[in-house]
Design a binder for these strands. Structure first.
Lengths: 195, 195, 195, 195
DNA sequence: CATGAATGAGATTTCATTCAT
DNA sequence: GATGAATGAAATCTCATTCAT
């Protein structure tokens, strides 16, 4: 079972770095120190291996989303926690997260495939979470009166954009977490004392 | 020459939708209504076709960046124009832009390749532009005293995140342009009357 | 197109001699003097090549059955002609005919496959032809009062058994044609003067 | 030992239905409810398993041939008994018999292999038996003066053809046994009262 | 400019077989 | 007896590319 794990780890990294098609089964097994047929012993094929990695990743991702604390003193802290969770995740599972951001999109055409399914689910979850948050924050006067739908899309875009930068190794997010939160806070929260 | 253009258009779309590796020369020619050797008459090969498309796209992109008006009354208007330019671009050249966002990243390892080169150039350009802008805006008291480096990264992430959403067809950016600008404005510009 | 024909001829022979599974695409192409991918240029795959050969063979077979003369003085001559047609066919297309007898049966489980389909069609045709023949021959007193269904099955079995012997190279049917006809005639036709 | 038998039974069936090459060791073990290495505990390999099944079958076949009664009142009864024996055999061991008819032929090229060897032996036995029978029957005036060699081939073809029909599940031999015998009797035996 | 036919290199996958337990 | 894990060898198939016309 150790070897099975070696395959999964190596494949995650390579799929993330090079994409699904550009990664050959031979390369995976060579770097994992096993022989090619072992992939086919543990998985139905290259596709199934990819699917397996992706399911695990999204499962982990969604289970973490569920742990977000919904009893924060302010609505903004929920957003802060959501952003923090993503920064945390990409530190722990850089390849896996990058896989969902970068390799998935090229496999999105077939609406039944696992990428499409999970990316939709993610979007729905984040939209619902943020919409709640903004609605409540605006109604209790914590937030400025921003248009909810657009602002939700925007925050999701920010999260995605940041993870992507990081995946491209264009940024070492250190310090960006705090600043992203501040940026949003200034834009959303009413009556902040000026910096 | 019409057929050459058909090849380029079809290839742009397919490379963007499926990635470079997942797109076969046969598929390109079939969907373009030509035969395979014609690719080799007009280009050195599949790589060269890709390179051609990418260079044109980045050339167009950089030439547009150069048209940005640097004599705006306020510094924020420069940022507004920059964001607007990207929204404009993705409306006009959706496949080409999505290509740079989605297909390039998996080809980034080789530092000599055209993707790496241009993405670095893009990043340098945007960083320089936004750094100038923020530095000046802060010094003249138009902007809050935000940490420049991080905020620059953040704005770039927002732009990328938005284009990516659009490419994934998760969003119809209509309305998002204006709201993105407002979001940033609230966060950056001092003494706005509260909404 | 000459090379395509070389593939078909070589494949027919090898499929017949060794069976479908035991024949490799490499072997076919080597013996046909071409390279492997050429199979995939002209056919969808090994299966499609097999299917193509089989369709042509059965098409030829059924078109010959249709040429059988139905205006013979006696009913027995129809049977004689039917047997003769099969002997003739196996002389002209030994590999192809042997393919239908020997390689088809192992592919019979899937009821939609081309073997199943054609073998059923063949059986239906022969049954209908022979049933007519026997019915009429009995009613006009040319034939003994034999049980029609069973006798039809038996004549089909004789034809199949003979072709199979020949395919196995256990027999050189010379002389067998005439004798097969005599054997059946003695059994079926009334009032023959004893040999 | 029960599991060994499960392997043998399942393998017989699958080899007969699909052929030797098309049947994988994995399929055999799955359908037999065991694991692959067990085949290698009981047999030297897939070839050896096939050989084992085939030897048993032919051994049983030849031992039955030896039980044929040679002291019948008429020569024709010998032929009748021979045909009956084959009908009987295919009822009892349908897979095994079909194996010899259908799977063996594709393995006939190598003259040292077990199929070639046994099929030759079978042919020799039947030829010798029937030749004796016909020679004697003709000399004592029981049979018409038929050409012996050809008629022998023909009777063997009939037997093979019938077993094959049955194996292909094109026929339920019920009733055919009796009628096959009658068909041959009418053709061979002198002075039958007309039906 | 354009194509039908063909190919070299290599990818994915299968399968009989073995090893360690 | 029996098995889960693993493998060497080879099969089918794909794909970018080229040749001859």
């Amino acid at each position: 079972m150790k070897k099975k794990n070696d395959i999964i780890k190596t494949a995650s990294r390579l799929f993330a770095e090079q994409g699904f098609e550009a990664t050959t089964t031979l390369q995976i097994t060579k770097e994992a120190g096993v022989t090619e047929p072992l992939i086919y012993y543990h998985f139905k094929g290259k596709d199934d291996l990819f699917t397996h990695i992706l399911s695990s990743t999204f499962k982990e991702y969604f289970s973490r989303l569920e742990t977000l604390n919904n009893n924060t003193p302010t609505e903004f802290e929920k957003i802060e926690n959501l952003i923090g969770l993503h920064f945390q995740l990409v530190e722990e599972l850089p390849h896996e997260i990058y896989l969902t951001i970068n390799t998935c999109p090229t496999r999105l055409k077939d609406p039944e495939n696992i990428c499409a399914e999970n990316i939709k689910k993610q979007k729905a979850w984040l939209t619902s979470f943020l919409t709640d948050c903004l609605d409540k924050g605006i109604s209790i006067g914590e937030f400025n009166k921003v248009p909810v739908t657009e602002t939700v899309s925007l925050i999701i875009a920010i999260i995605n954009g940041l993870l992507r930068q990081r995946g491209l190794k264009l940024e070492h997010l250190s310090g960006l977490n705090k600043e992203s939160v501040e940026f949003c806070k200034r834009s959303l929260v009413k009556n902040l004392t000026e910096l």
